[in-house]
Design a protein around this nucleic acid. Structure first.
Lengths: 349, 349
DNA sequence: CTGAAAGCGCTAACAT
DNA sequence: ATGTTAGCGCTTTCAG
């Protein structure tokens, strides 16, 4: 009743298990006749090789570990996950997934567990740029590592990120060109409670990049009025922050949000206040989703090449695993501003 | 430069590797003194147990395989995946993910690979109810299996599904109560090309369940006019199907869609035609997302308890893995109709 | 309380 | 062309 092993196959075929192994993997010198007999025996027994034993012997598991945060308000990480799983499978690798919920302690533990399970490499979305001792070559047993979505300065590993700066800047410029003079920015960050106009420490380079892009847009366009609100990721707080903006003395005509959590808050508040999107209030966010395009008006967005990020992450990781890669690379992929109806053209009036 | 093994720890601590192993796992009779010395040695060397070797010995991997379809237009599978990964981790299990894109050949292969990797159990979203030889106890080496989202009649395994029938029926009744007399149904199915009003073979019980729920609603409310369109999952085709409905002699006042792909098509077409949702055209769909609630008007939806599905799937699977489970169960969880503004109240006029 | 030895299933040197 | 043997790293009898 137990799974057949290569020994059973060998016995049935009347050969030694070394021969059986050779026959199954088509290596070494072996007669076509034997191969056939062994394969027939394997088929008859329903033999399936035990990958754990193979890993034990070979010293590799053909498995990579993915440490990621799950986020259901944008499809970036979901699509990245799918992209990575699919790309890995194409190369004969499976993926073990860990979700960190952006918690560094969980991230640490996840990486540890993955290493104990002997993954051949790691793809990580680091929860913070501030702590990275657990990503050092020693901590990761010299296993290859590719960091995606965010950079972690100080870690000697390949990273695949996106150039959010430029498109965020472009978004501001476009809004100003359309006549928006009173701008506002709603930035999500887990480093504070509630919301505040003071810029706090930002935990990751991606958000920093977006903020800088927005900022530069403001400077370049010489916009006088620009309000900044940094806000915790809590939905209720986000709505409060939006209300705060709209209740200010000089309410903004447009809100740029750093992610879709914040954009949802804007939509909700707009709905409650009866404000029409793209008319009474304008909105720009980051990370495209199908629904952002489908609703009316569609929402203007900074789109990031998530499939490309995923594809490259696997490609680069495997290069390192197979020792074909030299030095770590810092790859930054371009983003794209997709203009839709959520930004009102104030000049047309 | 190599990872230290238990032998290295034993050597450093001056004990046999059997003793070292005992010390590390706190089992058997062993002096507190030795335990301390061994653990100190382990710490000094940065010893991490090799889970592959442990699996080899123990005959289990503390890993489960998840075979799922990725779908970015609704969060059901994404959230299920997260729920499963998190629940598994709580119990000390990791999850290897395979995406099938609803392709039976890939599903077969994925299950096979997972079994070769010696997962302790499988959670599967079967791509079709029609084929299931690969899910039989023999094909899966008698490894425990839990099927989610859809039932596969004929497979002897625990399944966790949702009762979409009732809420879909309720949705129709509510719409009729609001004065809708001309109903339409847009059902996604991968079993046909293009779209058609003839009911094709449906590949899974979940869609079947929704159709039956809608159908029963029509019957119960004695609605005379009801148009049915079965449509391939292609976005362009879906839009064409919506246009077809709206261009018919008696255009429906409401469209019930079987999933969010179809709902997006309705939104797009409505946008292009300048139809206002919840006024000129009404919409009900299945599977809630944050954006369905955030936009104005919100979209009425049949919500399924995805987190509960995930939690239960892991719970039941582990019961089977630990031999605590008796017979396979067919668990059906209740769904809920969430009414929002996308269904116009025609009687109020 | 601890050590020696066996063995999980596999493959690659090393024979023959 | 095939068989014998060793060993990947670990845990668990079995002895002592």
């Amino acid at each position: 009743m137990k799974r057949p092993t290569i020994n059973d196959v060998a016995a049935l075929a009347g050969v030694s298990r070394a021969t059986a192994s050779r026959a199954m993997s088509d290596y070494g010198r072996i007669s076509a006749d034997t191969v056939e007999r062994v394969k027939a025996a394997a088929l008859e027994l329903g033999y399936q090789p035990n990958a754990v034993a193979q890993s034990m012997r070979a010293g590799n598991t053909k498995t990579i570990g993915l440490v990621v945060i799950a986020d259901f308000t944008n499809v970036f990480f979901d699509r990245a996950t799918k992209g990575i799983v699919d790309a890995a499978r194409d190369q004969g690798y499976e993926v073990i997934i860990s979700n960190t919920d952006e918690n560094i302690a969980i991230e640490r533990e996840a990486i540890n567990t993955l290493l104990q399970k002997q993954v051949d490499g790691l793809i990580v979305v680091p929860s913070t740029a501030a702590v990275h001792d657990h990503l050092s070559p020693t901590s990761r047993q010299n296993k290859p590592l590719v960091i995606i979505d965010r950079m972690v300065p100080g870690v000697n590993a390949t990273s695949i990120t996106t150039n959010d700066f430029e498109s965020c800047e472009a978004a501001v410029k476009e809004a100003v060109a359309k006549g928006h003079k009173n701008l506002s920015f709603l930035i999500a960050t887990s480093t504070i409670e509630g919301f505040d106009s003071e810029k706090p420490m930002l935990r990751n380079t991606t958000i920093e990049d977006r903020v800088n892009g927005f900022m530069n847009g403001v400077i370049d366009t010489k916009s006088k009025k620009a309000q900044w609100v940094y806000c915790s990721e809590n939905p209720a707080t986000a709505e409060a922050a939006v209300n705060h903006l709209l209740d200010s003395k000089a309410p903004p005509s447009i809100i740029f949000t750093s992610n879709n959590d914040m954009a949802l808050a804007v939509l909700k508040v707009a709905g409650k206040r009866g404000l029409e999107l793209g008319k009474d209030i304008s909105l720009v966010t980051v990370d495209d989703s199908q629904w952002l395009e489908a609703i009316s008006p569609g929402i203007t967005v900074v789109e990031r090449p998530v499939d490309e990020v995923a594809r490259l992450a696997v490609e680069k990781l495997l290069e390192h695993i197979n020792n074909k890669a030299k030095k770590p690379e810092k790859i930054v992929l371009p983003t794209r501003l997709i203009s839709r109806g959520s930004v009102a053209n104030l000049k047309a009036k």
